[in-house]
Structure formats: structure tokens, C-alpha cells
Simulated assay, not measured.
Amino acid sequence: MPITDPELAQEMRHWRAVKAGSISAAKKTPAEHNAAMAKAREGIRSALAREIDPNGTLAATDPDELSRQVRLLRRARLADASLKGVKARAERRQRTQVGAA
């Protein structure tokens, strides 16, 4: 059940951030957090765009295609990271089962 009271939601985020040791995150409002995350997302997007199109030719000729390729590369990277995590957890689980037997 989502929390609808913005003050309560902000307070919960604050205490969660304090517990996690992130005092700077605890002081941010939702709007500040969203703005900071937008900057981070744009940084990642521009880095991926530079990787795909280092000369900037695709950005100049077909920005929609560049955007599509950036989306696909980001999705592929996230899927790759997820797969690595799954494999690592399976390997760790197998090691602990072999050690316990």
C-alpha cells in the first residue's frame, strides 16, 4: 500500500537514508532527489551515446536512431549485469551446499 501523505513519505525516506548512512540523501526532498537522478541518468545516456557514436555523426543525422540504440545498449548492459548476478548467486549457493555436505 503506497503512502499518500508526502510529509510521512519524506520522513520515512529520511530515516531510511539515515539508517543506511547517507545523511546527504536524507536531507533531499523528492524533487531534489528526482533532479539529481535525472542528472545521473543523462550522464549515463551521454556516455553510452559517445560509446555508440564517438564522432557524433549519428547524433547529427538521426538522433532518434541514436536514442534507440542507447536504449538497447542500456537494456543489454542491465541484462548482462543481472545474468552475472544470477550466476554468482548460483555459484555461491552451490559452494555452500557442497561445503555443508
Rank of each mutant, 00 (worst) to 15 (best):
R45Q: 10
V18R: 15
A20H: 08
L72Y: 00
R77E: 08
A76T: 05
N34H: 14
R75I: 10
M12F: 15
G99D: 12
A20G: 11
R74Q: 13
M12Y: 12
P30H: 14
D5Y: 04
D64R: 09
A20Q: 10
V70D: 01
R16P: 04
A31M: 12
M37H: 05
Q69K: 09
G43E: 07
A25V: 12
A100I: 09
A90I: 10
L8C: 05
A90D: 11
R68G: 01
E91P: 09
R68D: 02
P63G: 09
A60T: 07
D80C: 00
A47R: 06
A31E: 15
E11T: 06
R93N: 15
D64Y: 08
A79T: 04
E91N: 12
T96E: 11
A100N: 08
D53C: 08
K39D: 12
A9G: 07
D5I: 04
A76H: 03
A26R: 02
K87V: 05
E51Y: 04
V70L: 06
A90R: 15
I44Y: 06
R50V: 05
R89G: 11
V98E: 12
V70N: 00
A9K: 12
A38S: 07
A59Q: 10
A90Y: 14
E65T: 15
L66A: 01
L83S: 00
E7G: 09
L48M: 10
A49M: 14
A81T: 11
D5Q: 08
A38L: 13
Q97D: 13
T4K: 07
S22L: 11
G56E: 01
A36T: 05
V86N: 08
R92P: 02
L58Y: 06
E11F: 02
S67C: 03
E7Y: 00
T4V: 08
